[in-house]
Structure formats: structure tokens, C-alpha cells
């Protein structure tokens, strides 16, 4: 094995790390916010139907097709190019981010919905009895309980999104995967390059797994001191 090459490769792949992290963090933030809105919408009948259709479409189709539809598909319409959104949609960065946010929101909203369903009715009633406002109940009872419930599933989604960011390389963006693809076509040393890139992604997702396991334990006071969960 050629260690100088591997070293150089790691160095140049790491140049793509900021963009990968950027997409990852922002799509989780944006997706999480949108997921919350989708769940609030579910309290009305029409909102429920809209949110249901949204989740159905975005979970039922591959992310790659969503990225292409936003990047190449939308730009094909004249009115999109005339609109105020064009300065954003013109840039591959915003198209990629938009696709990731929309995709993440669909999955996260289902995870959150499962968490919300698991919130005991009694807890909410107790809040109401003690005179909390609806917003206070949401903020201090429902969401924290739902979030704790949804945490294991959500940490899977967090790792999925890290992996999903690799697909933005298909619309000319130079994230870690984009750099790896370009390097492959230049040097033809595909296996070494791909293994380097895989190692970096793996290291990050291991960190996340460790952190979320610790976080879950922290948020489960009733598990303290017990050897099995």
C-alpha cells in the first residue's frame, strides 16, 4: 500500500468535510423544524391530509430523484427562473440543501409522530389541571417526553442524513464524496480513494452513535444503576 498516496488522499478529502458537515447540520435543523410544523398541522383535518400526502411522497421516492427534480426539474420552468427564488435555486448548494431538508422532514415527522403518540394522556391532563397554557404544555411536557421517546429512532435518522449528504455530489457539489469521485476519475485508483472516504464517514457516524448512546442514558434517570435497559 502506498501510504503517501493515502495520506494525500485523506488530506484532500478532508477539504470536503466542512461542506459535508454544513449540509448535515443545516438539513437536520431545517428538517427538524419542518417536521415540527408538519406535526402541528396534523391537528387539523386539512393539515393532516396535507402532511400525510407530503410524507407519503417524500418517503416513497428515492432522495436522488428528489435532488434531480429540484435541481434540473424546477429550473426547466420559465416562471421559476423569473421568480424571486431563482437566485437561490440557481445555486446547486441551495438545491441540495432544500432537497435534504424536505427529505429529512418527512422521516423526522414520522419519528416525532410516533414519539407524540407515546406521550401519556395523563401527563398532559395533569399539566392542564395545574393551569398551564397550551404552549407551556407543548414546550414543557409533550415535546420533552416525545423527544425522549423518539431519541433512538432519531439517532438513526441523524446517521442516515450524514450518509444522505453524499448524494449532493451528483449535482456538481464538492463534498467529500464529490472530491472522491473527481479523484477517482483523475487517478483511477478507485478502491483506495473510496476506502479513505468510507473511513472518514465511518469515524463520524461512530462518534454520533457513541454520543447518542450517552445522551439516551443521560435522559433516562430511571435507568441509573441498572445493568440492562
Amino acid at each position: 500500500m502506498d501510504f503517501t498516496f493515502l495520506g494525500d488522499m485523506f488530506a484532500s478529502l478532508l477539504k470536503g468535510l466542512p461542506l459535508t458537515l454544513n449540509f448535515w447540520v443545516l438539513s437536520l435543523l431545517g428538517g427538524g423544524t419542518l417536521a415540527l410544523i408538519l406535526n402541528l398541522m396534523r391537528t387539523t383535518r386539512i393539515g393532516n391530509a396535507v402532511a400525510g400526502a407530503y410524507v407519503f411522497v417524500f418517503r416513497g421516492t428515492p432522495l436522488l430523484i428528489q435532488i434531480f427534480m429540484i435541481y434540473y426539474g424546477l429550473a426547466g420552468f420559465g416562471f421559476v427562473r423569473q421568480s424571486f427564488l431563482w437566485p437561490f435555486l440557481r445555486e446547486p448548494y441551495w438545491c441540495g440543501l432544500l432537497a435534504l431538508i424536505l427529505n429529512d422532514a418527512a422521516y423526522t415527522s414520522e419519528i416525532l409522530r410516533g414519539g407524540l403518540r407515546a406521550v401519556p394522556k395523563g401527563a398532559v391532563e395533569a399539566g392542564r389541571v395545574s393551569g398551564m397554557t397550551r404552549f407551556a404544555i407543548l414546550r414543557r411536557i409533550t415535546l420533552p417526553l416525545a423527544f425522549r421517546q423518539a431519541l433512538p429512532a432519531y439517532s438513526n435518522e441523524v446517521i442516515s442524513m450524514l450518509k444522505a449528504t453524499a448524494l449532493v455530489s451528483t449535482i456538481t457539489l464538492m463534498d467529500m464524496t464529490g472530491i472522491a469521485r473527481a479523484a477517482i476519475s483523475e487517478t483511477w485508483r478507485a478502491v483506495e480513494i473510496l476506502l479513505c472516504a468510507a473511513a472518514i464517514y465511518l469515524a463520524i457516524s461512530l462518534l454520533v452513535t457513541r454520543f447518542s448512546a450517552w445522551f439516551e442514558r443521560r435522559l433516562s434517570p430511571w435507568h441509573f444503576g441498572r445493568t440492562t435497559p
Binding site: I159, K163, L167, A190, V191, Y201
Partner: peptide, 19 residues
């Protein structure tokens, strides 16, 4: 399990194709 769940699918497919 840890490796396959921590690496982007597209890299696994490329690795499989090239290697």
C-alpha cells in the same frame, strides 16, 4: 453491521463496482 450502517450507500456501491 457498524461499518455498513456508517458508510454512505453510494460509496458501498462504488466500492463494490470498482473492487
Amino acid at each position: 453491521v457498524v461499518v455498513l450502517r456508517g458508510v454512505p450507500d453510494i460509496l458501498v456501491i462504488y466500492l463494490f463496482y470498482f473492487g
